[in-house]
Design a protein around this nucleic acid. Sequence first.
DNA 1: TTGAAAGCGCTACCAC
DNA 2: GTGGTAGCGCTTTCAA
Lengths: 338, 338
Amino acid sequence: MKNVNIKDVAKKAGVAVSTVSRVLNDHSDVKKETKEHVLNVIKELNYIPNNSARNLKRSSSNSIGVFVLGEYNPFFGEIVEYLESEISLRGYSVMIHFHHNNRNDLETASQFILEKKLLGLIYLGGSVSKDKEGYLAQMEAPVVFTSTVVEEGVNPELFSSVRISEEGAVRNILNHVLSLGHKRIGIITAETEGLCASPERFSVYKKILQENNLVFKNEYLECGDYSIKSGYDSMKKLLGKQLGLTAVFAVNDLMAIGAIKAITDSGLCVPDDISVVGFDGLDYGQYYSPGLTTIKQPISNFGKNTAQIICDLIDGKSEQSHIVLDTELIVRESCKGI
Amino acid sequence: MKNVNIKDVAKKAGVAVSTVSRVLNDHSDVKKETKEHVLNVIKELNYIPNNSARNLKRSSSNSIGVFVLGEYNPFFGEIVEYLESEISLRGYSVMIHFHHNNRNDLETASQFILEKKLLGLIYLGGSVSKDKEGYLAQMEAPVVFTSTVVEEGVNPELFSSVRISEEGAVRNILNHVLSLGHKRIGIITAETEGLCASPERFSVYKKILQENNLVFKNEYLECGDYSIKSGYDSMKKLLGKQLGLTAVFAVNDLMAIGAIKAITDSGLCVPDDISVVGFDGLDYGQYYSPGLTTIKQPISNFGKNTAQIICDLIDGKSEQSHIVLDTELIVRESCKGI
DNA sequence: TTGAAAGCGCTACCAC
DNA sequence: GTGGTAGCGCTTTCAA
């Protein structure tokens, strides 16, 4: 079956091609009856506009890219799903790209935009720092950083972002831990650029210990890569050091779960011997034994806000914007008083 | 900065546009030196061919669609990630679409192909039955069903597939359960088209009980929707019925985990009071307490084989093909002898 | 082996 | 309000 094109529609409707085009693009200057008639013919002929042709004219695709940083992660998986549904609703397509290392991230992202002629890019995870401003300024399409750590001092006019207050969230969960009487609190973070630290969460953790006159020793720190396995391995190391830790803060739920398993495997008990708290609020944590005390990220709000911002940016309806979402402390059983 | 196009390349290289095009498409009839020269100019100018224009001519896009059935699921998430990397390697793009209900799946898939002018479609999950043959025959692009239950009697020339032997896998895990002396084995399946049963796994389960002269009662069955929560709820119902079950088979890991939590919450113990086995082999099950006994699906092989088949189909290198992958029984602690 | 040119389906400009 | 038409960047005949 030959594909129907705009010419066929025009012929059948008895109008010019340009009129059909105007109807397709919802231009105002078409007589109401004409418009309805054309719309009917379109439906009748089962006509689907050819996106390649449209994009050729517009010299861009109809797609928004999602650039996912790091290893596969159910948290991002859920965000992607929300993004996909919100964005298709607005008439755009989604192209996904997974980027596995921390090198050249913005360069690769820029290539991605160029190659796929993306209208906009959603960057999931990672961080933006001042030294990336150069790349940001040259981006060929608007970029929204979602669930990305935005370091201070980066020019906010160069990008948009949807994120949580890392400091507020870490404070929230650590205050809970502290209020339960813990004094020796270990931390399992993730590696960034070869350095053993998820910078933001780690530095807030250190600051809070200090504020509470608690010591931080380097031995209290181990780092993984956000995977369950790495949480398990890190906890084993921590345990091996015999530090007398009474609580451990893992910077994501997956590692927290690995840590709990490591503790259990060592013949100890959570939370009786050691308390563990996580970060993300995956469903998983609720059904783990013991239930995981954690910070819940606003997943659907990440999706909705990000979709809205990128589409508005593309439609020229708004300027770069920055949204900070609330997180929520979820108290379950993995952390108890001393 | 104006985008470089094929004309610019041709001018700079001192050849005709058509020659550049031939180089781009790796046609054989270009003199070696000319080709090299053009390639150099392309690199020098940082030229990226405009896909919209290419697609317009070819009247198709450069993308392969991934149609994901059902709710978000980490198992599919991982497969998607493998697919994305394998497919980009071969020069195609990936477009994802999540389809949340079981109605009109193939119709929607067909629309998806048409609208995005896809070269091929990967269908993840769900099932293919004889009554869908009509749709299959009319698909506008080759379709590979991955991790899809293929019912018997469907004409294999209409599609390709990569899957496991459901019967073999279910047999494998249930034999393990039976060998441990269990006689009253419940099942938690997922709903399909309003019917309370994941047909294939459920029917094999019933068959095996029969073969072993064990009774199956309808009360032994509960069904969820593959989510952890539904596993939890289903198990609660099963427990409420006081059936004296000693083991429960959940048709996926997520529901198995929910089930274990429900048992624990009811003051019982897994595996001492009730054994639970799952299906999928997510990493997660290894770190759960107790470790989940389950069937491991060959995730990376799903990705590799699927990518290979769809690309070969598109490149005209092969016919429809059907691959059955091996699964592996993973024995951990959630199921023990009576 | 290479060049010239038609035209893929659409949008947007200029006429009327 | 509507029609005619150039041209987006590329591939692919047809000629040379």
